[in-house]
Design a protein around this nucleic acid. Structure first.
Lengths: 222, 222, 222, 222
DNA sequence: TATGAATGAGATTTCATTCAT
DNA sequence: TATGAATGAAATCTCATTCAT
């Protein structure tokens, strides 16, 4: 009796299975993943899977869904509470958290699955698009809009600008996850890459400084 | 003799099979794709595949390789001969061609496969990294370096800058390929997206405003 | 409970499969035998085989091994406990048992397989050579050595002599198994053949007693 | 033109194919042998085989038949012309030739096939039994009968005695062909083995020693 | 005659799913 | 709930045989 308590904490089997599925499908994809292996990873008999999920596809589906949700929750914690700082500071803070999220194993796996197989699961794809991509962008675009209003950033469509930051981060996050193949990143740490992105990005948001300085325009006169 | 010409065009069977494999694997991935279907698509008996490829994996491997190569050749034609224009014009011209390439079906499929399964084929992954990613970046970074030298662009590491344009393009190309899921792009055409990217990107390369306003610098003096 | 006993006798499935394999491979050889048929013979689905053996070759391998072992055990029982009789009597007793073994279906099948395919399974061949051939010979040579010591048999290398009896028995056992093709044996029963072998063999072991002693001849004179 | 003459001599293709089949089937058996390989060995296209043989089985059948015949012809040459010597000398001479035959590659292959697969080809089995086994025994038994008549050998059924020599030789020939597995033969050359057999065998044919004790012989005189 | 690409039936093997316990 | 042996459909792969050239 006491013995069973010493076990890691009888984690509800459903969760165990979803975790196991995460690793299996993450490595081999939907078609390549084997229920046998998932059962083994979860220390459970193969038949048990069917007590919790009607079939392989459903297990995959739920695994992706819960992973996305878990990743989002994690992201929310990380992104945290933006203080009332300058827009740039907020953007930097947000990006730091968001980048950490993008580089997490959970997101990397989800991204791989999204790219590879989610065209067969339109509802998951939609869920991912709405909750991950769009939500992330909304966070960003809010900050940008504020920055633009305050004159910190130039006039720019906030959604478009958010999309740009999103693109830069997601693509780089993938490349960082495959560093061995991309020598350009071999000697750059994750944090440095993130800073490069931010610096580059913020340049594109800078207000058109000289524009409003009448002096500047007069320069060309004489 | 002339008779043989009337045949649908005796496309070498190897090519036929690689084409069929392109569609099958493109849709279902390596594990999900069925040789049966590939044979059917190629109008060929199952056994015939084995006259040309020793096994499924080899067929997949060669399909990816030839697709990458074909895509590259196509890209080269598109990117074409950059006239001796301003760096910005060159960058625009290059991006237009490159973007067309990224949006082609061939590239979309390759990208999906790369992201999904190429971790099991390190040599293909390397090939893709070297020939697609790195080569594309090299083209870009050359132009940027020239632009910086000429004073058209600000001082910036050309490779880093190239990576940024690459990331923006590739990520957006994927999103455009899944437009139905990304309402932000629903009402924006491919060309408009490309222009957004270019405009945004070029802003980040602009020379530093204060540089050209002697007044500006003097402002800090007194 | 008693109910389970009424079932055909729940012979462990592994054994069932090995038995089925024995007949299938025995008839058609390794390459010719079909897993489909083995499954059918064992009243089992094809896939079940793979729960017990990783592949066809392994099934063949284990089948041969267990058959050899089973045959040996059977042989040991048959050969039994040699009483402290004359060497000739012992040899006769041993040969009777050994011959029964050689004429059993199990041995006939193993011998066919050994001769036909075991060059692809050196470890099985070695096992057979050591455990069947060599062990049988050792039994024989022990008796012969004792016989020679006692003066019952002439001076002869016991191992060589054992090999001779082994050769005579094994070859004749094969011929007896194909009687219809060998008219010379058509009218001779197994037991008669065995006796022919024994009589012939014992002649070759007779001491050279009288030959060299002229005295010996005179002994008979009165 | 002259060039074609330099080729090894356009050996009739049929022969070429039978030779190739000999090696292929010899190594892998009927079910395991591949027509593809046979064609390759014969430097011929796969389809060509069907110009000479209606199917795989027929090729196998004819290959075995011609091999047996060829082996017999070779045996006949080797066994040669027995001079009018003593029966023992004749037996020795014959055995030397016969042994050489048994140890030839041709015979070894035939023997393997006979043991393994000829139960599916009763006519071949019969042919082999009649022409190889029985014919060889007839040669031997003739000599033995003569030896017995002359008093060189003891009274013994000549056919039985011939069978014994045949068994000793054939079994030992197989063992010699698998020497690596039979340490007992590892240090004994083929010729030594043959001599052991002969010596042993002749002992069993010796006239009954006591018989020729002068008294005994004199008994026959009056 | 000779070729060898093509075929397709049939073999081995895998694995999601079921079910008696 | 939980098990895991058993299933059998479906996948990969092989190879004897055919046939247009």
């Amino acid at each position: 009796m006491a013995a069973t308590l010493s076990v890691p904490i009888a984690e509800p089997k459903r969760k165990l299975l979803l975790d196991a599925a995460f690793h299996e499908f993450g490595e081999r994809g939907l078609a390549g993943g084997r229920l046998d292996d998932i059962a083994k990873r979860a220390n459970v008999a193969k038949g048990t899977i069917y007590l919790y999920f009607p079939n392989k596809e459903a297990l995959f589906h739920e695994m992706v869904r819960t992973t996305i949700i878990a990743a989002l929750e994690q992201a929310e914690t990380i992104v945290g509470h933006l203080e009332e700082d300058s827009a740039e500071t907020q953007l930097r803070t947000l990006t730091i958290g968001w980048w950490k999220f993008l580089r997490s194993e959970q997101f990397q796996v989800v991204q791989r699955l999204v790219l590879a197989e989610l065209h067969n699961f339109p509802d998951l794809m939609q869920f991912y698009a709405d909750e991950v991509i769009a939500r992330g962008r909304r966070l960003i675009s809010t900050i940008i809009a504020r920055g633009t209003m305050r004159g910190e950033f130039r006039e720019i469509d906030a959604d478009t600008a958010a999309r740009m930051l999103s693109a830069l981060s997601m693509m780089h996050s993938f490349w960082c996850g495959r560093r061995q193949f991309f020598p350009a990143l071999a000697n750059t740490s994750d944090d440095e890459v993130r800073n490069e992105i931010l610096d580059f990005y913020l340049r594109a948001l800078r207000p058109d400084a000289p524009d409003h300085s009448p002096a500047a325009s007069s320069r060309t006169l004489p």
